[in-house]
Every structure is written in structure tokens, then in C-alpha cells.
Amino acid sequence: MSATDDPHLGTAEQEPLGPPPISPLRENWRYFLANRGAVIGLVVIALMVLTAIFAPLIAPHDPTAQFRDALLVPPAWTDKGRPEFLLGTDALGRDILSRLIFGARYSLAIGLVVVTLALVSGILVGLVAGYFGGWIDGLIMRVMDIILAFPSLLLALVLVAIIGPGLFNAMLAIAVVLQPHFARLTRGAVMAEKHREYVTSARVAGAGTLRLMLVTILPNCLGPLIVQATLSFSNAILDAAALGFLGMGAQPPTPEWGTMLAEAREFITSAWWVVTMPGIAILVTVLAINLIGDGLRDTLDPKLKRS
């Protein structure tokens, strides 16, 4: 959301640097492990991945099963709670814990799909713009400017309205609005790198354009991209939840957390647990990912220790 945006900023920072030394993976890993927050984040996410994979085994109930005799049952530890519904039930008598467990699948999938789409398209666009320069660069960057001129949530909202509400369409829209960050980052790095000696020598040695872009230049801009990818992962989850909250994301009965919140909004004063639980799930997940992101940034890109 912040570390990226201005191409001038990016390149200005890059200039005094040589190509970052590619340190052995193991050393990075050890450095990463020294960061307590990052490790906590990693553990939380690992647990979530396991939860998502084994959701049918862990969840006490079917997430869409309606217990018609148990509408809006409060959590088990409260007076009116029932032990079989640990976190209570929603308006249709569905078990909230089971829905949250299955919801982990959606949130992780949202993060993965959105980041993959945005990363791949952003890198390609950025490489092309940065490598070729000239009018191609001008055109691409103007398009990116246009996308960035709209508040991202508003743009995503309009895009989803056009292609129709739904989880996959929401992911597409979010990928579109996140993509310029990757494009700008890649372009900035490529512009800084392309006149360096190692690139020139590779070219002299006869490397083709594609090879130059993908094999020679790209690996040297990976650090900031990975950091940005982690940030985007959490942004994707937040934006998808916000779209779900506004009724444009995943459609009920999908147990996506933002959609659960939207459905729960009418119960804000009468059934707090329906509102609180999905929000906590979102917060914890995003927090864990951001912890990992901070750790990765410190490890991979000491120069980008911002935001």
C-alpha cells in the first residue's frame, strides 16, 4: 500500500546501490528466523493452511447445514450457549466455527490467486515498459496512472459490478487494481538495472531480449517484489472482505469471512458473536501475513525498511 508507488522514489533509492548480492538461501532463512514476529506470523499461517486443507476433518459440522432448531445460538461459554456450537450459530442455524474453518480456504485462495495474477501481469507489463522505454513505456505508465488515480476499492467495486458479483470476479478486480504496484516496481528496477555492466555484457554475449528480461534482469529485482507480494496478499484479503461486506464479493451461502460479516451486520446489537468472529478471523490472518511481510522485507531488502 505504500512502499512502492512513486517511480521516481523507487529509482532514486535504487541508484546508489549495486546489484544486491544474492545471499545463500540458508543465510536468509536464519536471518528470517531471528525475527520473532515473523516466526509467529509464519506459524499462524501454517496452522491456517493446515486448517484449510483438513477443513472437512476438523470442522464439527457441515458449513452449510441449517440447524433449524438452533437459530442464533450464542457461543458455548455463555449462558444460553450449546456445547455442540462452540462459537455459536448464525441466522440460519449454521455453525459459525465450521464456517470460519471452511472460510480459511477462501481467504487463502483469494490471497494466492490475486497475488499470482497481479504479480505475473505486473511483472510482464513492468518488464516491457522498463526494457523498451519510449512510447510503449509512456502508454503503459499512463494506463497505470489511470488505474491508480481511482481509489482502489471504488475501482474494484465498479469492475465487479460490470463483470458481476462473485468470488472469482472480485479476485480479478482486486488483481487489476493491485497490479500497477508490481508494474511500477518492476519498471523502476529494470530501468535502474538495464544499463549496468552485467546486463550489457550479457547482451554482448548474445542473450536474446526475452532472456535478458527474464533471466538476467528479473532475479535482481525480486526482493522488493516479494515484499510487495506479501503486502498485496494481505490487501487482497482485506479488499475481498470489504467487497463481500458491500455485497459484491463472494455470494452467500459461501462461508467467506467478509460475506459472513455482511450477512451478520443486521445482528450487530442483537447477536454480537455473528459480527465479532469473522472480523477476528480476518484481522488475525492479515496480521500474521503482515508480520511475515515485515520479516521478509528485513531479510531480503534492507534498503526498503519502510512502511
Binding site: L72, A91, F267, I268, T269, S270, A271
Partner: peptide
């Protein structure tokens, strides 16, 4: 927002409100 209307009514900021959330009516 219906939830906000209902809260303003309880707080005495509104005298009458239309269309409360069905879930709030018992309260």
C-alpha cells in the same frame, strides 16, 4: 443504516424510526 437508526433511537437522538432490522425488534 438500520443498525445506526436503532442505536440513535435508543440513545434518544431520534423520536421515531422506520424500518428497523428485524433482528433488533425483540430488543
Amino acid at each position: 443504516d438500520a443498525g445506526v437508526r436503532q442505536q440513535k433511537l435508543v440513545a434518544g437522538e431520534c423520536d421515531i424510526i422506520p424500518y428497523p432490522n428485524p433482528a433488533d425488534i425483540d430488543g
